[in-house]
Amino acid sequence: MTTAPVTRSTLVRGMAALGVGPGRTVLAHASLSRFGYVAGGEHTVCLALEEVLGARGTLVMPGFSPQLVHPAAWRPARLNGADPVALADDMPSFDRASTPVAATIGVVAQCLRAMPGTRRSGHPHTSFLARGPEAEAIVADHPLEYRLSTLGPLGRLWALDAVVLLLGVSWSKCTALHIAEYLAPYPGRRQGRWPVPVAGPAGVRWVEVPELVVWEGDFERLGRAFEQARPESVRRRRIGDADCVAVSLRSLVRFAVRWLPAHRDLRGLADPPGWSAVEPATGVLPGA
């Protein structure tokens, strides 16, 4: 830690300097530890975001739960010889209210999930959390297929001209960039059938749905290229020890749609475990 403790006021001033103001819709990704010591912890960050957005603003964060993916997608070391089908039959179903946000997403999102009035979309792997006047409209419909396309909450964020806010996290965590993967016909783009758990009277059943093979491996390079090409579209500020960025979701995705075909080639990438019938995705996908 190199700075004084970070307070709610520190965070509000910093986010206001990033151009985040009352009435905006924000898709935020946050790492609490990157700020240094935050007085009041993750709750302080959530309250600061709400304060800077005001009563007319809407706060959105990923509420992802990858702990509920089918065991067939686990690393072999984690399976340790166990039968993935038997494990899958004994896994819990997704519950909007009680399923925890994965630790890899961060404690700030977990805090937002637990706050009264927060809404959550219904995808068992990639739900989104939202608070504010647009929250219900954003999370109301989240299809099982093409989960990070404009068919789901990311599409409503596009329509609302949302701001992407990276608080102490890199471009590799920028979920909005997945929209471009459904839009851009880059080499090696492919889709398959992906199993998702659905709650039923007899317990969890697994349903295979069509899905694009998404990849974050070049998001950092993509984000840096955007900053170099569109410096006027990116606001950066240091809040505590955290490097923070604010950018228009639409501007970023439009750039990514042009960048991916010229700079990404996934033809040598192995098919991910857990998928079936993986095949090229050369045409326009639903939700693109």
Rank of each mutant, 00 (worst) to 15 (best):
G155P: 10
V108S: 01
G274T: 06
E216H: 08
A39N: 05
R96L: 15
D161A: 09
Y186N: 00
P231W: 15
T2M: 13
L151I: 08
L47W: 06
A162T: 08
E216T: 10
I105S: 00
G223M: 04
T3V: 08
W194F: 12
R237F: 12
P273S: 10
A39G: 12
G188K: 12
V164H: 02
A73Q: 14
L252T: 08
G240Q: 11
G106L: 00
P210I: 11
R237W: 13
V253G: 02
W158R: 07
G223Q: 07
V253M: 07
A114D: 07
R254C: 05
C244L: 10
E51C: 07
P62D: 00
V196N: 03
T3K: 03
A114E: 08
W259C: 03
P62H: 15
D83L: 10
A88F: 14
V234S: 12
L144D: 10
F255N: 03
R189W: 08
V107S: 02
T118Q: 01
V107T: 09
C244M: 02
S149F: 06
M15P: 09
L49G: 00
G19Q: 10
L177D: 08
L177K: 03
L157E: 10
A229C: 01
R190P: 01
F128E: 02
S276Q: 13
A229M: 08
S276T: 13
S93K: 08
D265I: 14
S93T: 13
D265G: 06
F94L: 02
R156D: 15
P231V: 13
L87F: 04
L166H: 05
F64E: 02
R221A: 15
L53F: 00
R8D: 00
R189M: 11
A103K: 15
P5H: 13
H29P: 01
W259N: 00
E227Y: 11
A28R: 05
R258F: 05
V213P: 03
S276H: 14
A17P: 01
R156S: 14
